[in-house]
Computed example of a mutant assay.
Amino acid sequence: MAARNAGTGAPHIDFDAARSLMVDDQVRPIEVDDPRILAAMRTLPRERCAPDAERQFAYADRTLPLTEGRYLLQPMIAARLTQAAGIVNEERILVVAAGTGYLAALASHLGGRVIAVESDPDLCAVGEAFTSDVAPGVVWRHGPLESGGAADAPFDLILIDGGVQEIPGFCVAQLAPGGRVVGLLSRDGGASSAFVAELDRSAPKGSAANGGRPIISHGESAWAIRLQFDAPAPLLRELLPKPVFSF
């Protein structure tokens, strides 16, 4: 699959073959059976979402660094997270921390109307160039992650492209009735699990939610959370809980 370019020592990779192998060896064996996801992952040139130094590993079973504190999730996590989201055609989707655009493009190929928010201008530029070619329906917003996508709300799905320790506060106001938040939740800063969360405004603060650990938003609303699968995920620093000072 990889050979050396004569005179340079740089690896020459057949990315088309690597992409197909990724789906067959990494994605299908972990019970990703949505044909839309499999077809999209065979098509999307993931190597364009990786930095030059990491491009040869674009289809390896690993999470790749993009810049300080930001990562391109490994293929199997991206696939399972997208499948857990259960994207329906024409849903309004906010992808938070969209990075270089791979997850946003994947959601768009599944029929979502995607708004991608990214705080890093360099990542945003790469992502916008990528999706303009492969998923032109994706609309990019450059701004702080903790603000979400207020100007484009409400959303049927808020998809977080990275790890969090709690559901961001903006999700309460920006989620449409019956909508859901999907991402990777770190339990006490340790292991993380994919989750699907729905607002339960009727639940008393601090109550248990569907047998999972309750995550309480700002105010009195609670989240009913379903944990899906364990997955290593670096935390998004911008979405870490703010320190609480007491006197």
Rank of each mutant, 00 (worst) to 15 (best):
G179E: 10
A6M: 07
I167F: 05
I13L: 11
D14R: 05
S193V: 15
D122E: 14
A58N: 04
P214A: 06
G212E: 08
Y59E: 02
F170M: 05
F195P: 06
I13N: 10
P11S: 10
V196H: 05
T67E: 13
I87N: 00
A40L: 10
R113T: 13
L240W: 06
D161C: 06
A125V: 06
M22G: 04
M1S: 10
W223D: 09
C171F: 03
T100D: 11
S202K: 12
Q228C: 13
R4H: 13
G137N: 00
T100A: 11
I13A: 04
A3Q: 14
L159V: 01
A58F: 04
E146Q: 08
L44Y: 02
F229L: 12
V96F: 00
I167R: 05
E166T: 14
A222W: 05
R226T: 13
K205Y: 09
A150W: 05
V96H: 03
G211Y: 00
F245D: 15
V126S: 10
W140Y: 01
V172M: 09
M76C: 11
D152I: 03
L81S: 12
A17W: 12
V134K: 08
T67S: 15
G190M: 08
A203S: 13
L73D: 09
R213W: 04
A153I: 01
A233G: 01
P29S: 03
K242M: 14
F245Y: 11
S221W: 03
D120M: 00
A107T: 02
I160N: 03
D25Q: 15
G169Y: 06
H142Q: 06
S192D: 07
I216P: 15
P144W: 02
S119L: 05
G211S: 00
